[in-house]
Design a protein around this nucleic acid. Structure first.
Lengths: 324, 324
DNA sequence: CGAGATTATGAAATTAATTTCATTTTACAG
DNA sequence: CTGTAAAATGAAATTAATTTCATAATCTCG
């Protein structure tokens, strides 16, 4: 993508301010700054694309009580939050933003002084952390649940470590990082690494978290394929799917019944133990997007999660006749 | 103004989300919700007007170092912050928002644990407090500098007390309120009131603040006239202007040299003593808008303030040949 | 330096958003 | 119930924003 200079960015920001904040017309802006109308229009597009201008809706997201109680009943969930729209968006990014907003407000509701919460990685986690607006600060402990993935889609911000630190900072709590890669191939190296003081201490904290906050990824040939690039080969993915993988959560691939998949990759993880997910902390999964139904359904059937935050489109499918 | 129902508000919020957040066209939204295009367009107007959608520009405001140092030199200010535009907005509300944004970021820079800051009232104060985004919490003490004005333009949010509480809450500091009217006509009543424990304690704190944060209002026949309505009669204003009043700050009317105006109204105040402004705390004044130049100039000449936060249009006039 | 490719530009064409205006619906006093 | 005023509505006209397209500027690599 094309690079935008600093000076240019300032002009774009100014144009965005004039248009959105001041409500000037593009024509007036163009005349004032001696630009063509086209240039102003293009500047505004860049402002939106680059996040120079952000839109915020001061109105709470709508929830569907019907779907929430149906989900709870059907899958024995302790809690369910279903974000509804008046229409159904087909855009994954937007679903994820909305689910993240809902998750952020839920966390603000439930977290209390002294709580320990473990964080996983992914776009939904990023959107959740980004949108946290604590109504009051809390001395929570935020713990990194899994090691760092190779490059977290090449973005600093999506990195687990950053998320953990950001969340801790937002609540004015403390952050505990797990300074290790998510997967370590050599058994010997992994075992030794896990004995290191620093790692050991983090793993110990992971075992004591009150809450686990994670996303759920779907494993399919199309789907979120691209996101995984650079860190899971196309071949390996096909292999996993053949073995029955439908979803992925906290580093583990699981099948349609939510069982940990029999594959070496699932034993190379540095992070929260799989069994710990099923008993112990309250596992909050925030997940949505174009089609994560199978993945979420697997996680639900395997009782991997206690609280699901999703959107109405997915919830409808989950409670539908073929759902449970 | 017309009343908008709750259900309708939800629809408007949803439309705003679809248009601004998701980037859908108004036509698509109209088709999806079975509305006319006109209705969607009107809903979006309401969303903007009612603040259901808010625009945020992720780019720092530009400052003019030239004007800042010139102001400091010319008026012996300890500090000056000048917000610049690529163009000159004629809209007072927007100037005030921008100055408030700058003031908010300045406060985040300077306030330290244990600092005591006194707050005055007005639209600029409101915009400042609203836009505070502490980079870290601080145990500051926020003190109400003047009593409550009769109705603060009929708006709860603009009320000094609310501002003080909100600022304290934002920084996670403490709030000290001055539970009294700003002006008390009867000398006896005023003196007795000031002896009350609660008031006395507040006044005592006021005398010990490290910073004073205030706006500056201009006193002129047109100008911000309307804002003062209900609390200063047209006749009284004419009278004050005849006596030489050009500006107003922390409850006091002052003349073009920044001297406290000789008028009974200036002795009926419950709040920070006038002399205290000139020696003691660092007085930070945030002020701008269509024409506050005379008022600000008076305050500067009288050395009523130590730090001025304003916009480039006013700063240019202040440093211009006729300025000092 | 220069040929080819890439990117930037603004006038004009197209598409989208807003406003007008005539009509319908709703609110409400009698 | 009326009758009247006020508010809401959508088709059409107007105005605003975006995209296209032809051209100009800039960058890239031999």
């Amino acid at each position: 993508m094309r690079q935008i200079g600093d000076e240019e960015l300032a002009v774009i920001a100014e144009i965005a301010r004039m248009y959105y904040v001041e409500g000037m017309s593009q024509l007036d802006i163009a005349n004032m700054l001696f630009f063509s109308k086209a240039k102003v229009s293009r500047a505004l597009r860049i402002a939106r694309e680059e996040g120079i201008v952000e839109f915020h809706i001061n109105y709470p997201l709508k929830r569907s009580m019907r779907l929430e109680s149906e989900l709870k009943r059907r899958f024995g969930l302790k809690e369910a939050l279903v974000v509804t729209d008046l229409y159904s968006s087909q855009n994954t990014d937007i679903s994820i933003k909305r689910i993240g907003e809902m998750a952020a407000s839920y966390l603000d509701d439930i977290l209390k002084d002294g709580d320990m919460i473990g964080l996983s990685w992914g776009r939904t986690m990023y959107q959740t952390v980004r949108q946290l607006k604590p109504s009051s600060p809390r001395k929570i402990q935020v713990v990194q649940l899994v090691g760092n993935s190779t490059d977290a889609y090449n973005s600093q911000e999506l990195d687990v470590t950053s998320l953990v630190q950001r969340m801790a900072h937002t609540f004015q709590g403390t952050a505990t990082m797990l300074y290790a890669p998510m997967y370590v191939n050599s058994d010997i190296v992994r075992r030794e690494l896990m004995k290191e003081q620093l790692i050991q201490k983090a793993l110990d904290k992971i075992n004591r978290v009150d809450y686990v906050l994670t996303g759920i990824a779907d494993v399919s040939l199309d789907g979120s394929l691209n996101s995984w690039a650079g860190y899971l080969t196309e071949q390996k993915k096909r292999d996993l799917i053949k073995k029955g993988a439908v979803g992925y959560l906290c580093g583990y691939f699981f099948d349609r019944d939510g069982n940990k998949l029999q594959d070496p990759i699932n034993d190379k993880i540095i992070g929260i133990p799989f069994e710990k997910l099923k008993n112990g902390p309250r596992v909050i999964a925030a997940a949505g997007g174009v089609d994560k139904t199978h993945a979420i359904c697997g996680a639900l059937r395997g009782k991997l999660i206690d609280c699901l935050i999703t959107d109405s489109r997915i919830a409808e499918k989950l409670v539908g006749p073929q759902g449970g």
